[in-house]
Design a protein around this nucleic acid. Structure first.
Lengths: 171, 171
DNA sequence: ATCAATGCAAACCTTTTGCACGCGT
DNA sequence: ACGCGTGCAAAAGGTTTGCATTGAT
């Protein structure tokens, strides 16, 4: 199982520019993501590449369904199972972020920053996000209830982004 | 449709103590909830009563499934559809709160306070909650991205409550 | 008597799983 | 050649809906 490779990161790693150059090309970032997978011993299949590429291009929260739809153009026989399997893999490798939305459905976006803890403004129309400055766990000087052991927290601000506000008023 | 009754609240409303007195009786609160439904023109069926009662007794986040299970004792032929229909109704009337948990499943709890905005510490084991003092939207002096129109936010702190910490270490 | 509430069954949607085959390494 | 990755099909959850019946008012 490739998952079990050690997580020490290769300090001497350069970005190689090769194949698959896209319109909205994201210079080295893409390779950084793919290399990370390779380091971990995962195979770089065309589908896996494309999922990373699309998520990078989109740069917003997107559902498995929408993602599959985009991928179908390239891989007509692709189905949900593979998409989910890859999304789970990418999430475990911390290359993407998942958020469960109000309707109970999950959406995924490329990791904004693999190192820093952060929260998002999220546009409920298009899924675009923007970073929130600060974290409530620091800002609120809260003391946990006696004996309560904090594991995680969730903080998200939902609304319409500038673009989607426009289109809404232009209606 | 009773839903369409006006939402002006009756200023002169007293709690009547009648039928259905329970072990963990929650004095007037229960009637307050039921009266609210009656005011809105909804029928007070046995099932609806019981759902409110159970949610009041539990006083924690509980899944539709767990709720159904508890109700089955009293109403063996009760099924999910009715539970969900009632949960939706209660949510619309703001008598209960819903939260989508990490696994994508919804859980419900009796409304803590119909008037005040609040956030929760939530025990991921038993669902018990405790109020968080303050709201990140106030604490963080954040300015929304230009043109971003904030609609809602979500802030929840997950972990193990004192009780569930104990049982875990007692293992 | 009326109309909301319920039971039943079935549909729906998202996500997951088993298994045999295909493909990246 | 090895073993992960994939397609297919099917199952699994959780939630919703249509319709006829029951029941609260």
């Amino acid at each position: 199982m490739p998952h079990e490779h050690d997580h020490s990161h290769d300090p001497c790693h350069h970005d190689h520019s090769h194949d698959h150059i896209h319109t909205h090309s994201v210079p080295n970032t893409k390779d950084k993501f793919l290399d990370r997978l390779k380091e971990q011993g995962f195979k770089l299949t065309g589908k896996r590449r494309s999922i990373v590429e699309i998520l990078l291009e989109e740069d917003r929260y997107i559902s498995a369904k929408d993602l599959l739809e985009r991928l179908k153009a390239q891989f007509p026989r692709l189905s949900f199972d593979t998409v989910y399997r890859n999304l789970h893999l990418l999430k475990e490798e911390r290359l993407i972020e998942e958020s469960v939305f109000g309707d109970g459905g999950s959406k995924f976006r490329i990791a904004c920053d693999t190192n820093h803890h952060h929260h998002h403004f999220i546009c409920t129309v298009c899924g675009k996000t923007q970073l929130v400055a600060g974290c409530p766990m620091d800002a609120l000087q809260l003391e946990a209830p006696t004996g309560f052991h904090i594991e995680t927290h969730r903080f998200e601000i939902f609304g319409h982004c500038a673009n989607c506000c426009q289109s809404a008023s232009a209606r």
